[in-house]
Design a protein around this nucleic acid. Structure first.
Lengths: 145, 145
DNA sequence: GTGCATCCTGTAGTGACTACAGGAGCAAGA
DNA sequence: TCTTGCTCCTGTAGTCACTACAGGATGCAC
C-alpha cells in the first residue's frame, strides 16, 4: 500500500531518489560526477540503481547545503563521519567555524536591514528629486543636482 | 602633497580607479564588458582614462553589491537615478522587495544559528562514537552503528 | 508493439567574479 | 640610450553550485 514505484523493495532509480530527497536529478548526477555521491551500480540497461544508503548520504548533503555548508565542507564532514566516526573534535571545529561565519552574516544583514528599512521609511514615493534610497548608495551625500 | 599618481589632476588610469574604489581591476573591466560601467575614453596608447564620474558610479555599484543587490538591480537603480531622477516609487519598490529578502535570510540564519549552536554545545570533542553535529545532518536520528 | 515516461551522456549556460597568458606602453634610473 | 620593472591591454578559461538542453536509449504498461 506504499512505494509502488520501487521495483525490488529497496532499490530504485534516480527519479525516485530525487523524489525521496528533494534533490534535482541533474544535481544528483552532478554530485556523482564531482565525487560527492558514490557512483551506484547500474542496471543491465545502464541505469543507476540506488538503495537506502544513497538516500542517507544525499539527504546529508542536502541538509548541509541548506545550512550553508559548502560542498567541500560537507565532503569533509562525510569523511569524518565515515567508517569509524573519526575525531568528533574535527567535526566540531568545522561546525564552530561555520557558526562564526553565520553570526557575522547575521550581523551584516541586520545592519543592512536597519539602514534599508529607515531609508525606505523616509521615502515618500512620487517623483521627488531627492530619493533617500539612491542617496544611501551614493558615496557622496552632498551632491544632488 | 597628495595624489601624486594623478597625471592631470582629474583623470587617472584603471589602477588608480581600483585603488580609489576598492574594486578589483579585473572586476572594473568586467563591469565595462557587461555594460555596468560606461566605457571611458582611451589614451593614445589605448589605455582607459577615468574621471571622477566613474568613481561615483563604481562606488555606487560597489556599495550596492555590499548591500546584497544583484547587478541587475543596481543597473535598474542606476537607470532610475539617471539624468532626471525618475519615479522614486520605483526605486522604493526595488529596495522594499530587497528588504523582504533580507529579513527572510536573517530569519533563516538565526534558526540555523540556534540549531548549530545548540548542537556544538552538546559536543564534547574527543573521539566519541556519537557526534551530535553529524547527527543533526543525518535525516535518521536512530541509526548510528 | 506502440506510446510515453524515464533515463542516459555530453555540453553549455548562469552570476559575479577571478586568474592567467602573452604582449604593449610608459616612466625612471644607470 | 637602454634597460628594468611596473602598469596596462585583450582574450580566454576557471570558480562554485548548480541548471538546462539536445539527442538518443531504455523500460514498462496497455
Amino acid at each position: 500500500m506504499e512505494a509502488i514505484t520501487h521495483s525490488r523493495g529497496d532499490t530504485f532509480p534516480i527519479g525516485e531518489l530525487s523524489r525521496l530527497t528533494g534533490v534535482n536529478i541533474e544535481t544528483i548526477r552532478y554530485y556523482e560526477r564531482i565525487g560527492m555521491l558514490p557512483a551506484p551500480p547500474r542496471s543491465e540497461g545502464g541505469r543507476r540503481v540506488y538503495d537506502h544508503h544513497h538516500t542517507r548520504v544525499l539527504a546529508f548533503i542536502r541538509r548541509g547545503r541548506e545550512l550553508g555548508f559548502t560542498l567541500d565542507e560537507i565532503k569533509a564532514l562525510l569523511a569524518l563521519g565515515g567508517p569509524e566516526r573519526a575525531p568528533c573534535g574535527d567535526v566540531r571545529e568545522i561546525a564552530a567555524r561555520h557558526l562564526d561565519d553565520i553570526r557575522m552574516k547575521i550581523a551584516d544583514l541586520r545592519k543592512l536591514e536597519r539602514l534599508l528599512g529607515q531609508t525606505i521609511d523616509r521615502c515618500e514615493g512620487g517623483t521627488a528629486p531627492e530619493c533617500p534610497v539612491l542617496d544611501i548608495l551614493s558615496p557622496e551625500p552632498g551632491r544632488r543636482a
